[in-house]
Nucleic acid binder design. Structure first.
Length: 496
RNA sequence: GGUCCUUUGGCCGAGUGGCUAGGCAAAGCUCUGCAAAAGCUUCUACAGCGGUUCGAAUCCGCUAGGGACCUCCA
């Protein structure tokens, strides 16, 4: 296999060799469904969707697990603390599952908009309390966790004495142990660096489960360890997520799983970089998020218009997943135009016929196209360099348009290369990048109506009745429909 | 404070030692009844300083700016 993946654990690009030949186990940290997803959240889901699609394209059988974090200390966005609700009538209370359902539905809707493939398994934290408790008991038995007042903490100091705690996130254990911070539960912990496996629920806490240590709820890190182990085994190939999860989330996952399963759980750690806005990370605590619903509707002070989910997807694929990507309205507008141009070239390409083209061609266009197409796989193999693939497809676009307009003669490329070109565009744009037609104009009746208007306009033009022909064109433009007069005298249309 | 990353043309964004990525914007031309679209052409950048090298955006050092993580965080 030629695929190389940058492994955050080793900080190098490594050859990708699945643990079990032909199969890949991939776990990606999913959303916490206590609020609406924003643009930053879209990045890992789109990035790992493309990873999943590419691995599948390489004929690997992938089990893709992406969890839903629906346990923890939840409050609905915008609402005040819900501690007092217990005094109210049943229907006025915030039912945790109601909140979880609402944002889970919204998340699924967004994934559908982005044309993300559904994961093979989408486990919820609340559905795996038993497994999490089992794992915590195992860690206690092994002597790496202790109970205090109904809460259980992982003993980082003890773990670090014999294991590499901090390797993934490049942390120095002594610094961690010295860090001064006043955190919740700090006084219960033996050491500052320890983290919670189980938290005793205060009386007013509405999400709670019975456990050997009393009523409470699981710590954040244990859910991923439990679910990944259950569905992917003690050792699996790829674990993905945002860079900000490296510490403490993923570092702790390694520690928990290593104690329980006696093996480091993940072979390749992949981390996508952050989306920034004015150079700063987009995040709830910075108060600078743009929600996906706001992007899709254009309803945000920083946005001049609505943006199609495919524009966002394209925008994300235009940069490498390990680089920061700076958001701005202008950048999205540029992506929208670029995507439109590329997609229209693809539509033109679909209509080009191999008929009347030679079996072989010794032309500049032929060799250029072959060269550009030939590089695509090596770009993807090099740690998923989607921007390079797009650059090559953009190089080809003018040649496609020139073939359509006859600027390049029909015999400039061979029938074989044309067929290959069609196939490669389909494979990369649709299959691997998961892009799809942004304008949904495939309505038969609309097609007929448009054809009628185009015919009337053509007649008017033939009669030099430009008042009528311009009226048709201008009105359509005002409606967001653009007419294009082709070189061969026909007229095509598309959404502006 | 600690650890790490980053600085590319008007904007976005690839790129890790030699061969002007790409996109958007802008200008000119071709085509067109006029447009739009499309095609062609132009716009040769790598924070600053020093070093290594035949050769550096790319390696090393220093300086300056920006950022991330160290706390919930995609």
């Amino acid at each position: 296999m030629a695929l190389k993946i940058y492994n955050s654990y080793s900080r190098t690009k490594e050859d990708f060799i699945p643990i079990t030949a032909g199969h890949v186990g991939m776990y990606v940290c999913g959303p916490t469904v206590s609020g609406e997803s924003h643009l930053g959240h879209a990045r890992p889901y789109i990035t790992f969707d493309v990873v999943y699609r590419y691995l599948t394209h390489l004929k690997l059988k992938v089990r893709y697990v992406r969890n839903i974090t629906d346990a923890g200390h939840f409050e609905e966005e915008g609402r005040e603390a819900e501690d007092k609700v217990s005094k109210k009538a049943q229907l006025e209370k915030l039912e945790p599952m109601e909140l979880v359902q609402k944002y889970t539905n919204l998340f699924h809707w967004a994934m559908l908009q982005f044309n993300c493939v559904e994961p093979s398994i989408e486990p919820t934290a609340t559905g795996h309390i038993v497994e999490q408790i089992g794992m915590i008991e195992e860690i206690i038995r092994a002597g790496y966790a202790y109970e205090v007042n109904g809460s259980v903490y992982f003993d980082v100091k003890k773990y670090a004495a014999s294991h590499d705690y901090g390797k993934l996130s490049g942390r120095i254990i002594d610094d961690l142990l010295e860090t001064t911070r006043e955190l919740d539960g700090q006084e219960e912990k033996r050491d500052r660096a320890d983290f919670a496996l189980w938290k005793a629920a205060p009386a007013e806490h509405i999400m709670r489960w019975k456990s050997p240590w009393g009523e409470g709820f699981p710590g954040w890190h244990i859910e991923c360890s439990a679910m990944a182990t259950k569905y992917l085994g003690k050792e699996f190939d790829i674990h993905g997520g945002g860079m900000d999860l490296q510490f403490p989330h993923h570092e702790s996952e390694i520690a928990q799983s290593t104690i329980c399963n006696h093996v480091s759980p993940v072979k390749y750690w992949m981390h996508n970089n952050m989306i920034t806005i004015n150079g700063r990370k987009m995040g709830k605590s910075y108060n600078n998020v743009i929600k996906l619903t706001e992007l899709f509707s254009g309803n945000h002070p920083l946005l001049s218009q609505a943006f199609h989910p495919m524009t966002i997807r394209f925008f994300i694929l235009q940069s490498h997943y390990r680089s920061t990507l700076d958001f701005s309205n202008d950048a999205l507008i540029a992506s929208e135009k670029a995507f439109k141009r590329l997609w229209e070239a693809y539509e033109v390409l679909k209509k080009l016929s191999p008929e009347g083209r030679p079996a072989s061609a010794d032309t500049e266009a032929e060799s250029k196209i072959r060269g550009w197409l030939g590089e695509l796989e090596s770009f993807m193999d090099d740690d998923f360099s989607t921007p390079k693939v797009l650059a090559n497809l953009f190089e080809i676009a003018p040649l496609i348009n020139s073939l359509k307009d006859g600027i390049l003669p029909a015999d400039a490329i061979s029938s074989e290369t044309l067929l290959n070109l069609k196939e490669q565009f389909r494979v990369y744009l649709e299959e691997i990048f998961g892009l799809c037609n942004p304008d949904g104009s495939n309505n038969e009746r609309l097609q007929s109506v448009m054809q009628l208007l185009i015919d009337i306009r053509k007649e008017a033009k033939a009669n030099k009745d430009f008042v009528t022909s311009d009226k048709i064109r201008n009105q359509l433009t005002a409606m967001g429909i653009m007419l294009k007069d082709e070189k061969d005298g026909t007229t095509s249309w598309g959404l502006a």
